[in-house]
Simulated assay, not measured.
Amino acid sequence: MRLTYMLLFFSVFQLRAESFAQKISISVQNAQITDVISELKKQTDFDFLYNNATLKNAKPDYSGY
């Protein structure tokens, strides 16, 4: 009986999480990180906190490609 309640509980939360999912489409090359963040802000309801001085000197990281 406990297992049934646990499965029901987790399935309800899974359905709820899927309803809040967003589709984001962004494709950039050689763009500044501030431009990417601005585009993400436009497509989502998220706000980003960052220090402009830190991002101004940020270098690209291609280690994942």
Rank of each mutant, 00 (worst) to 15 (best):
Q32H: 15
D35M: 10
L55F: 14
P60I: 01
N57W: 08
T34A: 09
D47S: 11
Y50E: 06
L49E: 13
I26N: 05
Q22T: 13
L55E: 03
K56Y: 06
L15D: 03
V36I: 10
S27R: 07
V28Y: 12
E39D: 11
T34W: 01
S11N: 05
S63M: 07
L55V: 05
K59F: 03
I33R: 00
V12S: 06
T54S: 10
L3G: 04
V28G: 05
P60C: 01
Y62A: 15
V28Q: 08
E18I: 15
S27C: 10
Q32T: 15
T44D: 03
Y50C: 08
A21W: 08
M6P: 01
Y62L: 15
F48T: 01
I33Q: 00
T54M: 06
Q14K: 08
V28F: 12
N30G: 12
A53H: 07
K41E: 13
N30D: 15
L3N: 11
F20P: 00
F46E: 08
Y5A: 13
S38Y: 13
K59L: 05
I26L: 15
T44H: 05
E39N: 04
L7G: 12
S38W: 08
E39M: 12
M6N: 07
L7H: 14
M1D: 11
S38D: 13
K59R: 09
I37V: 09
G64Y: 13
F9N: 03
Y65D: 09
N51M: 03
P60H: 02
D45E: 07
I33Y: 01
S25E: 09
T4Q: 08
E39Y: 06
K42G: 02
F48A: 00
L49W: 10
Q43L: 07
T34I: 13
D35G: 09
S25R: 03
I26Y: 12
A53R: 04
I33S: 00
T44V: 09
P60E: 02
L40K: 04
M6T: 14
D35A: 14
Q22I: 14
R2H: 15
Q43Y: 06
